[in-house]
Computed example of a mutant assay.
Amino acid sequence: MKKRKVELVVISDIHLGTYGCHAKELSNYLSTIKPKTLVLNGDIIDIWQFRKSYFPKAHLQVIKKIITMASKGTKVYYITGNHDEALRKFSDTFMGNFSLLDKLVLDLDGKKTWIFHGDVFDASVQHSKWIAKLGGFGYDYLILINRFINWCLHKMGKDSYSFSKKIKASVKKAVKFINDFETTATDLAIDKKYDYVICGHIHEPKIKEVENKFGKTTYLNSGDWIENLSCLEYNNKRWKLFKYQESTISNIENEEEQLFEMEHLISSIQL
C-alpha cells in the first residue's frame, strides 16, 4: 500500500486499554500515512482505567505501529494527558526520535504552534480527581453499550446513534464547559502570541479562527478515537481535520468481539 506523506499529524484521546477505543480503525489509518512528525496529544494509554484482563492485540498493534514509525524516521512527541498522567514524572525524556513532554511548541512555516492536552483547564480533574475517574468509568461503559446497540442498528439497516453526543448537546453545563474551554485556550494563545493552539481532552474535533481585541489565533482540537475517530493533519501550510469514515470500515464490530467485550463489562461490574 502506498502511504500518504504528511508533514504533521496530531492524534489525541485514543484511550488504549478501554472498551470504547477504536484501535482497529486507528491502526488502519496509521497504515496509510507516512508523517514527518507525529504528535500524540494526551490520553493515549488510559492508565486510569487500565485492566490486566483487557488489552487486545489491536491495541498493542497501535503501539507497535507508532514505534515502527519512530524507528523509520518519524519524529514522535508524546504529550501527557490526565488519563496517562502517571507518565508525567518521566516528562522531558528523549530517546532517539521519541520525546515525552507535557507541552510542545513548534514552528510551522514561520507560525508558532502551541500544543498541549488541555486537562489543565478542567477543574474536575484538578480538584476532584476521583469524580473525574468515576465519570471516566461510566463513560467507558456507556460507549461500549452504545457500540453494541449501533451494531444491532447496522444489522437492521439503520443509522448509528451516539448517546454521549446527544447528552453533550442537551446538557447546558456540558455545552458551556466546551465553550469556556475553547475561550480559555484561545485567550491564552492570543496573549502569548501563538498562531495556532492545539488541544485534545474534550473529544470535540474542531478548527476555527478566533479573534478578540488583543489579536487572533486558530484553535484546533484533534477530537478522539472513541466516538469521532478524528485527528489533525498539516500539509502544505494547511490544516485538515481528518475523520475516519464508517463507510470505509469493514467488519469493525463482529459478533465475537462484541460478545468478548460484553463479557468483560459484565464481569467488571460484578467485581
Rank of each mutant, 00 (worst) to 15 (best):
A58E: 15
I45Q: 02
I47R: 05
N82S: 12
A86C: 08
L134D: 12
G110T: 13
W48K: 04
Y77P: 15
T80C: 15
D109E: 11
T93L: 15
T80L: 00
V62M: 08
M95F: 05
I66R: 02
K75W: 00
L38C: 06
G42C: 12
V39H: 05
R51C: 00
N82K: 02
I44P: 11
T113C: 09
D84S: 07
V125E: 07
H117Q: 07
H117S: 06
G42W: 12
K72A: 02
T74V: 14
W130A: 13
F94G: 00
T68R: 10
Q49T: 04
L134R: 13
L60P: 00
D119M: 01
V120C: 03
L87K: 10
G110E: 03
F121R: 05
S124E: 14
L40N: 02
L38W: 06
A58C: 13
P35T: 06
L60N: 06
Q61A: 14
L87R: 12
I44W: 08
A58W: 00
Y141R: 11
K75G: 01
S124C: 05
I115N: 00
E85S: 14
G118I: 09
V125Q: 08
L104E: 07
V120P: 00
Y54F: 15
D46H: 11
K133G: 01
W48P: 03
K36T: 12
F55G: 01
S91E: 15
D84L: 03
I63W: 03
K129E: 13
N41G: 10
I67E: 14
D102R: 15
K57N: 09
A132L: 00
W130T: 12
A58G: 03
V76G: 06
G73P: 12
V39R: 05
K89D: 06
A123E: 11
T37K: 15
H117N: 10
S53V: 13
F98P: 02
A70M: 04
S128M: 05
I45D: 02
V105R: 02
G81M: 06
Y77I: 10
I45F: 11
K72Y: 09
D107R: 03
K133R: 14
Y54D: 09
I44N: 01
D107Y: 05
N41I: 01
I45A: 02
S99C: 14
K112L: 08
S128Y: 08
L134P: 01
G42S: 08
L106Q: 05
N41K: 06
D92T: 03
M69E: 02
I66P: 03
D140C: 06
Y77R: 07
K103G: 09
H83I: 04
K112M: 06
S71M: 10
K89Q: 13
V62R: 04
P56Y: 06
H117V: 12
K112Y: 04
A70W: 00
L106A: 04
A86E: 09
K133P: 00
S53M: 09
D122E: 10
M69K: 11
D122R: 04
I79S: 03
N41C: 11
P35H: 08
L101H: 05
T68C: 07
